[in-house]
Amino acid sequence: MKNNVKITRMKASITQEQLAKRIGVTRQTIGLIEKGEYNPSLHLCVAIAKELNKTLDDLFWEVDDS
């Protein structure tokens, strides 16, 4: 599933490691979510959205592939 997590995280100047620590997952999990290789649970989606001060729509809803 494509998403806006990576671009939002980079705009917020947060590293994968920092985001991972703040929401209690591994850096690998963040990397996999950003690459669209792992679909996180709703619980984790909400945690990421809260940490990046965005809504679920901003991060995960209908991302343009182009």
Binding site: V25, T26, Q28, T29, P40, L44
Partner: peptide, 9 residues
């Protein structure tokens, strides 16, 4: 107790 905390793992 055998399962990791991380969601993906």
């Amino acid at each position: 107790f055998l399962i990791p905390e991380d969601e993906y793992k």
